[in-house]
């Protein structure tokens, strides 16, 4: 089927791309743009590893076609840190609180927590667990992820 011309903004950079309609947004980010931070676990919306921000809101990139992102803004995990040695406070909190082991789930979790913490700067542990209910982690048992989220919330509050 014929390619569609699109104009997609990813991590602040807007580019034109000719895209085959059936290309998933997750595969577009990984294969066309080389942004392999967005992970793909299940491709049916269950695991949350592929979560990115679509116009600021967390969505499953495996359940959207890249053509649908034309005219919209995507933020991936690569958009968080200013540089390799200057992590986003949320990432730094995950580092400090051991919020990851293998790291497969981490990008989806960060992209879920970022808008959550912006809306709920002082969340309770229950609210954090609720917010993370759509992200699976096979390593950590979640406790350190929750700790990291709460640590990030405290630091980001102070930072503001």
């Amino acid at each position: 089927m014929s390619d569609h011309t699109t104009l997609i903004t990813v991590n602040g950079k807007t580019e034109a791309h000719a895209i085959e309609p059936r290309l998933l947004l997750s595969d577009f980010l990984r294969h066309e743009l080389g942004l392999t931070g967005t992970h793909v676990g299940c491709e049916h919306g269950v695991c949350g590893a592929c979560t990115v921000l679509f116009d600021g809101q967390p969505v499953r990139s495996c359940l959207m076609f890249a053509v649908q992102a034309s005219g919209h803004e995507i933020t991936t995990v690569e958009g968080l840190a200013q540089s390799m040695d200057n992590l986003h406070p949320l990432q730094q909190a995950f580092w400090d609180a051991h919020g990851l082991q293998c790291g497969f789930c981490t990008p989806g979790i960060l992209m879920t927590l970022l808008p959550f913490l912006a809306e709920n700067p002082q969340p309770t542990e229950t609210e954090v667990r609720e917010a993370l209910s759509g992200n699976l982690c096979r390593c950590t048992g979640y406790q350190h992820i929750v700790d990291a989220a709460l640590l990030a919330a405290r630091r980001m509050e102070i930072g503001n």
Partner: peptide, 9 residues
């Protein structure tokens, strides 16, 4: 209904 990420779409 599902999770916030699903309900966003």
């Amino acid at each position: 209904i599902a999770h916030p990420q699903i309900r966003n779409r």
